[in-house]
C-alpha cells in the first residue's frame, strides 16, 4: 500500500515572529500540534524581554534568582554559558544589550523549537517542518520518496533565493542585517558586521545552527572560517562583495535549479 501524505500547516505569531508547523503525518492528532504551540507560548511568556512580568525580565531586574525560576531558565542559561565559552565571548547573553540586561533570546527560539519538535516526535510525528522566523527544522520527508527543500533567501533581492538545499533531518538558520538593519555588532570594535550580507548554518541542532550563524555573522568573513570548523555544521555566506562562500559539507546539501547545471556560486 502506497503511503500518501497529508499536509497540515499551522502558523502562530509567537516570540515576535511567525512560527509555522507543517506536519505530514496523518496519524498524529491535531492536538499534538496545539500542544507544541502551547509549549512555545509558555517559553515566550517566560523568556520574553518585552513582557515586564516574564521570569527573564524579573531575573534581569534581580527580583528572582535562577533557582526561583522554572527549570528551563537554568537550562537555557547553561546553554548560553557554553556558547559564550565556545565563541570566546562573541556570543554573550549577559552583555549583548546596550542596557546591560540579560538577553538569552539568541538561543531561546532554536532551543524552544527543538523541544517542540520533540513533542511531535513523542506523539509519533516523523515527517514535519518547523519554520520559526526563517529558522528551519525538518524531519523525515514532505511526501514519500522526496526530501524537504529549503530555499535560502537572497539577502539583497527580496524576490529571489540565493540557494536551495535539501535534506531529511536538518536544521537551517540564517543571520543577516537585511531585515532588521545593523542589529548585530561586534562590540570589540563597536561597529556592526559589514563584511557579510548573510550567513546561513546547516546542521543537526537548530539551537546551535542559530547561535553559530549569529556569532559567525558578527565575526564577518573570518566568521565563515570559524563556523566551518564547527563539527557537523555547514556554512553558506553571501559577502558584501557579492560572493558566495560555502563549505564542502554545504555543497553536499545544495539542490541545483531545475533546468540548468550552472553553479550556485558567485563568481
Amino acid at each position: 500500500m502506497l503511503e500518501t501524505a497529508v499536509r497540515r500547516i499551522r502558523v502562530e505569531h509567537i516570540m515576535g515572529t511567525a512560527i509555522s508547523i507543517d506536519l505530514r503525518d496523518a496519524e498524529v492528532e491535531d492536538d499534538v500540534v496545539a500542544t507544541a504551540f502551547e509549549w512555545l507560548r509558555q517559553v515566550d511568556a517566560c523568556f520574553s524581554l518585552y513582557k515586564p512580568q516574564s521570569e527573564i525580565s524579573r531575573l534581569g531586574r534581580g527580583e528572582l534568582t535562577v533557582e526561583e525560576c522554572r527549570a528551563e531558565v537554568g537550562e537555557v542559561l547553561s546553554l548560553c554559558e557554553e556558547l559564550r565559552e565556545e565563541t570566546q565571548g562573541v556570543f554573550n547573553a549577559w552583555s549583548c544589550r546596550s542596557d546591560g540586561r540579560l538577553d538569552p533570546s539568541g538561543v531561546v527560539k532554536g532551543w524552544a523549537v527543538e523541544r517542540a519538535a520533540g513533542i511531535l516526535e513523542r506523539a509519533g510525528g516523523r515527517n514535519f517542518c518547523f519554520n520559526a522566523g526563517g529558522d528551519v527544522l525538518i524531519r523525515g520527508e514532505p511526501e514519500p520518496g522526496r526530501a524537504w527543500r529549503i530555499g535560502i533567501r537572497h539577502p539583497n533581492d527580496i524576490g529571489a533565493l540565493a540557494a536551495v538545499v535539501h535534506g531529511n533531518d536538518l536544521a537551517v538558520a540564517t543571520s543577516g542585517a537585511y531585515e532588521r538593519g545593523d542589529h548585530i555588532v561586534d562590540a570589540r570594535t563597536g561597529v556592526p558586521s559589514r563584511t557579510l550580507l548573510s550567513l546561513t548554518m546547516a546542521g543537526p541542532s537548530l539551537t546551535m545552527a542559530d547561535a553559530y550563524a549569529t556569532a559567525g555573522f558578527a565575526m564577518g568573513t573570518a566568521g565563515v572560517e570559524w563556523v566551518a570548523g564547527r563539527p557537523s555544521y555547514a556554512p553558506f555566506a553571501v559577502t558584501t562583495s557579492g560572493r558566495v562562500r560555502y563549505s564542502d559539507a554545504f555543497a553536499d546539501l545544495l539542490v541545483s535549479g531545475d533546468t540548468s547545471g550552472s553553479q550556485l556560486v558567485g563568481r
Binding site: A18, R153, A173, T174, Y178, S198, S256
Partner: peptide, 19 residues
Amino acid sequence: LQAQSAQIDTLSGATYTTD
C-alpha cells in the same frame, strides 16, 4: 534566477524575513 525557479517547501532567512 536559476534558484528562483526551484521548488521549495520552506524558506530560511534572517529573522523577520519569515515574519
